[in-house]
Amino acid sequence: MKFYRNLTIKQKQIVWAWGFLALPVLFYSVIRFYPTGNAMLISFQDWNLLGSRTWAGWDNYTKLWHDPVFWKVFANTFIYLLLGTPISLVISFVIAYNLDKLRFMHGFLRMLYFLPFMTSAVAMAWVWRWFYQPVPIGLFNNVLASLGIPQIEFLRSTTNALPSVLAPAVWAGLGFQIIIFMAGLRAIPRSYYEAARIDGVSTWTVLFEITIPLLKPTIVFIVVFSSIGFLRIFDHVFNMTTQDPGGPLNATKPLVLMIYDTAFTGFDMGYAAAQTVVLFLILLLVSLIQLRILRDR
């Protein structure tokens, strides 16, 4: 105790800070950092989960490079990202922008938009799966049929399946993004809009020159956050294509699902670990690029 008493105020604060940080640091080391390091190690080994690990060097990575499925999956993952992020950004902004101006039933509508975010992805995926079924089961095709429009193969076409899986994933994330956008919109002082009104500029000018530039920090957050979400998409795909996960013909398979398949269907842990490392690098790279592009200049 004498030792502690002789410390300066600053040193005492540091002791306390580390005291509180010790538990999370320990937790993260054991639960996060150790497995991450281990995964990187396994990516250079061959292992079937039960047998002994053998050193494989760069074999897993060269195999990945020459694997046509990997490149298909790689492309799919980026299609999820490049479609999902801008679409959800625009939709959530449009809803938040208009909801912010609405007083009537504001709270109720906000709750409705937030509801999908709280719903289990599995339940949602299965409901959407039902929507997509052919006549006489599926909702969408029944509606189309009653209007006399030919049926659409949503989940069983190699071209339609990916957007069909993406739609509920976008919908599920909207609630959260709307809430974040509304918070951003609320933070803009009213007098900015009043000054613009007195200057008599058009609604579009106000939107593009005041609202959107001032929402930039919010937009950066949502873009990075939703990009990471779409790069890691798994549960919607898995639950909507259970008979043939990632099908048809790998048309909807994202990287995470390929990792899951390789690891727990193929029991090729080394190969799965190599894929995981690649996913990690992609996530890192995309986030860094986005932060750099969208950062305040």
């Binding site: 007098s191 000054a195 007195i198 005041i210 530039p213 001032l214 930039k216």
Partner: peptide, 11 residues
């Protein structure tokens, strides 16, 4: 009009 918080645009 000149506002209390000036309402000048930071960007």
């Amino acid at each position: 009009m000149v506002f209390q918080n000036y309402a000048i645009y930071p960007h």
